[in-house]
Nucleic acid binder design. Structure first.
Length: 822
RNA sequence: GCCGCGGUGGCGGAACUGGCAGACGCAGCAGACUCAAAAUCUGCCGAUGGAAACAUCGUGGGGGUUCGAUUCCCUUCCGCGGCACCA
């Protein structure tokens, strides 16, 4: 018997699949199924996380194809980004060449895994064919007012002299040089994602196939708060201070006001007053602190009275105005009314600066005046110290006071979101250029659509410092105004790479289109993605941005769907020795090495068998060995039967064991189908097949002389077919050996025979006081009464009861009888 | 602090609607084959007591509902993840 030569088999079938274009997909009349794994950054080497991600996707793709769906299963490259540029700075090579080489290498590695991708749909975000449409989309956003430029404080690394994305700030430090990240006022491009905050929040409800965890994270990130905006007139000024509060019911307890130090009123108000020096000194101090330092909860609250007062618009009370580090300029209105009695932060501040504290809500379980030490009371209760609202519950007061504020014209109910607009400018070279020019006469002018793509120049110097490398390109910098034709300046920033990845799943629907990002009919045919698979680390940013883009693209009438991903599977990490595999820890297991030693089928089987997909997976070399052993066991089972012509043996009357085997075969089909379909429990699907293999070996051993060849072939074929999505090479080889022709992957997924999975005899447990005492085999359709009788008359049970009083008998047909005795 | 997830043998994990806890795999032990080893095959494999039959305990801890709880409820401890002065 020939050995399981995985190397030869895998190479052979990978070549055949490629030659015959097996995985090419075209739109047709079948129901479609779009399965997508998050595309990788082309670092050059795949790691076990990739193997896991793509193995999961490939099983789904192959399974759905056998189920009769027209499956779209594409792959591409999130190819812009920092590592390429860093490599350019370090080694003096061009990011383009570096990236292309990496793509080539990774593609070869992916192919050794036997993944069923339609490579004709491959996209790379760094290719001009692709980023042309990223730029085109940017222009559509711009025309709708959804891309705009504003000056704001952004993360700034003083050593690298560049802006950093929030994700590039790790613990307040620059991820590259570890220097402290500061803040700098810069003019940058933003996407107005806040315009879609409500829709992004509301539509989370539609995402039934998403993990609860991810939905909660998105909800928290969007952070909707209902409340009111209220104007507090400033004494001796015509200005009004607008604040946002979620507790308008506590307005009579507003003992002071706080402005964020950056609030535009501050400098104006203190100018020329005796507070000016001290206030400016504090602002100066706070400006040099990172956000992390400044807004940490451990940070002591710090502030200053600025010498002015507000008038409470409902009570007329005079309230001092402070600035303080704990109020943020970019949330709400950048100013608050502080209610120390009912807000812990305000309480802490008031205690520190000896500010009056007025309780306005009386807890129902407290007699007499509310005594507040250092704990604010944030619960419900009855209004006090609140003029005509005294005696109302605070819920009622919330309504009535809001109404009064609106009636007086001093404010209105509103909502506030924690979500901020998306800063997309990057002072980097290796990204999609922002298609904008600045003309002295016409101002900010978009590049004409027919001039796209605005290509990245190649005459660049990579110094790693200062302005965007694009400023060093003469060819790029020379621009003319699209409106008036005069010499103009180019935008030298590029886009955040999250922009590129926010629409790639749409491009796969029609990847070669030169007229549009994709044809509407193709987009509508393939989208939404039926199953999206990737790491949970993208739970917020990528998935939120992609949802935002899809909604805007729908509003641009380029597609009819409003959510990109119907179902989402967030796979766990691959760990070794309890920690994430990483070079610095030295616990990396290379996929190449595993494939070389055991083959791709074993590697795939292991990552799917060792843990359910959502959970972290602990790498185990011996576990891999076990999967390899199992595949060998299948190999021998099939080859032995084939070579000894066991399938040809004929029996005239099926034995009881034949019936059991038939049951096992069809029950396994049922279990595996349900495990894949329902919850992607690949680990239990595989163990079900293992059990069937064990049973087939036992059957063969017990029926040496009278094997039912037809049934045995059914069992063996079932093993091969059920395993096909998991171990595509070996099953293809075995199928061709026992059947001569045809591909196992072209078969229909088997349906179990409902007759075969009905047992006519079942084992029933007999318990006394909930403890198992005996087991009996009874007809499956035995009635409750007969079962009870049978159990009571059981000899062993009789002797155990031994005259004790039977209090109750619970009989559950097909399951158990529980006899309660005293 | 708030929100979410999890805690089951030596290990990874199973038990789907409350019904035999530990499927399947790994590791371990014993045996068969072999001059020997590898490979393969067979059996055992939660803890305690017992020669055994068997008994008792056992799904982080405590309590509850139930004939019956890994599963439902209350409470508590531990671990992981996210957000974090968001007014």
């Amino acid at each position: 018997m020939s050995n399981y030569d995985f190397k030869e088999i895998e190479t052979k079938w990978q070549n055949r699949w490629q030659e015959s274009n097996s995985f090419k997909t075209v739109e047709n009349d079948q129901p479609k199924y779009y399965v997508l794994e998050m595309f990788p950054y082309p670092s050059g080497k795949i790691h076990m996380g990739h193997v896991r991600n793509y193995s999961i996707g490939d099983v789904v793709a192959r399974y759905k194809k056998m189920e009769g769906f027209n499956v779209l299963h594409p792959m591409g490259w999130d190819a812009f980004g920092l590592p390429a540029e860093n490599a350019a700075i370090k080694h003096g090579i061009h990011p383009d060449g570096w990236t292309k080489k990496n793509i080539q290498e990774m593609k070869e590695q992916l192919n050794t895994l036997g993944l069923s991708y339609d490579w004709e749909r491959e996209v790379a975000t760094c290719s001009p064919d692709y980023y042309k449409w990223t730029q085109w989309l940017f222009l559509q956003f711009y025309n709708k007012g959804l891309a705009y430029k504003k000056e704001s404080r952004v993360n700034w690394c003083p050593s690298c002299e560049t802006v950093l994305a929030n994700e590039q700030v790790v613990g307040g430090e620059c991820e590259r040089c570890d220097s402290k990240v500061g803040k700098k006022l810069l003019n940058q491009w933003y996407f107005k994602i806040t315009d879609y905050a409500e829709e992004l929040l509301k539509d989370i409800e539609k995402l039934e196939g998403w993990p609860e965890k991810v939905k909660t994270m998105q909800k928290n990130w969007i952070g909707k708060s209902e409340g009111a905006e209220i104007d507090f007139p400033i004494e001796n000024s015509d200005k009004k201070l607008k604040v946002f509060t979620t507790r308008p019911d506590t307005i009579y307890g507003a003992n002071y006001m706080v402005l964020a130090p950056e609030h535009p009123y501050v400098t104006e108000l203190v100018a020329g007053t005796e507070c000016e020096g001290a206030v400016n000194a504090l602002i100066e101090k706070l400006q040099h602190m990172s956000d992390i330092e400044r807004t940490s909860t451990e940070m002591e609250k710090e502030g200053l009275f600025i010498g002015h007062y507000c008038i409470n618009p409902v009570s007329g009370e005079r309230i001092p105005i402070y600035i303080a580090n704990y109020v943020l300029i970019d949330y709400g209105t950048g100013a608050i009314m502080a209610v120390p009695a009912h807000d812990q932060r305000d309480m802490d501040f008031a205690r520190k600066y000896n500010i009056k504290i007025t309780p306005v809500i009386q807890p129902s379980d407290v007699e007499g005046e509310l005594q507040l030490e250092d704990e604010a009371y944030d619960g419900d209760g009855i209004m006090v110290n609140s003029q005509e609202f005294n005696g109302l519950s605070n819920e009622e007061a919330y309504k009535k006071i809001s109404e009064k504020i609106e009636a007086l014209g001093v404010g209105n109910r509103t909502v506030s979101y924690r979500l901020r607009d998306w800063l997309l400018s990057r002072q980097r070279y290796w990204g999609t250029p922002i298609p904008i020019v600045y003309c002295d006469d016409c101002g900010t002018v978009p590049v004409k659509e027919e001039d796209l793509p605005l290509e990245l120049p190649t005459d660049i110097e990579f110094k790693g410092k200062g302005l965007s490398p694009l400023t060093t390109s003469k060819t790029f910098m020379e621009a003319t105004c699209p409106k008036c034709g005069k010499t103009a300046k180019r935008e030298t920033d590029t886009m955040d790479t999250f922009v590129d990845s926010s629409w790639y799943f749409l491009r796969y629907a029609d990847p070669k289109n030169t007229e549009l990002p994709f044809k509407k009919e193709s987009g509508n045919y393939w989208l939404s993605v039926d199953q999206y698979i990737g790491g949970v680390e993208h739970a917020i940013l990528h998935l939120l941005y992609a949802r935002f883009f899809t909604k805007v693209i729908k509003d641009l009438q380029l597609i009819d769907v409003d959510e990109p991903f119907k179902n989402l599977l967030t796979q766990g990490m691959v760990l070794k020795d309890g920690a994430k595999m990483s070079k610095s820890k030295g616990n990396v297991v290379s996929p190449d090495v595993i494939i070389e030693k055991y083959g791709a089928d074993t590697a795939r089987l292991f990552v799917l068998f060792a843990a359910p997909p959502e959970r972290d997976l602990e790498w185990n070399d011996q576990g891999v060995e076990g999967c390899f052993r199992f595949l060998n066991r299948v190999w021998r089972l099939v080859m032995e039967a084939h070579e000894n012509k066991m399938f040809d043996s004929v029996v005239t009357s099926p034995s009881k064991e034949d019936k059991n085997l038939k049951y096992m075969i069809h029950n396994t089909i049922k279990r595996v189908s349900e495990d894949i379909e329902g919850r992607f429990n690949f680990n239990t699907a595989i163990s079900a097949v293992m059990e069937l293999v064990n049973d087939l070996y036992k059957y063969k051993e017990n029926n040496k002389e009278n094997i039912n060849g037809e049934l045995y072939k059914e069992g063996v074929s079932t093993v091969i077919i059920l395993l096909a999505p998991f171990a595509p090479h070996m099953t293809e080889e075995l199928w061709s050996i026992i059947n001569g022709e045809g591909s196992v992957h072209q078969l229909s997924w088997p349906k179990y025979d409902p007759q075969a999975v009905v047992k006519d005899e079942v084992e029933v447990v007999i318990q006394i006081n909930g403890k198992v005492k005996d087991k009996i085999v009874v007809p499956a359709d035995l009635s409750k009464e007969d079962l009870e009788k049978l159990a009571m008359n059981n000899e062993k049970i009789q002797s155990l009861i031994n005259g004790a009083t039977v209090v109750k008998v619970v009989a559950v047909p097909k399951k158990l009888v529980n006899i309660v005795v005293k």
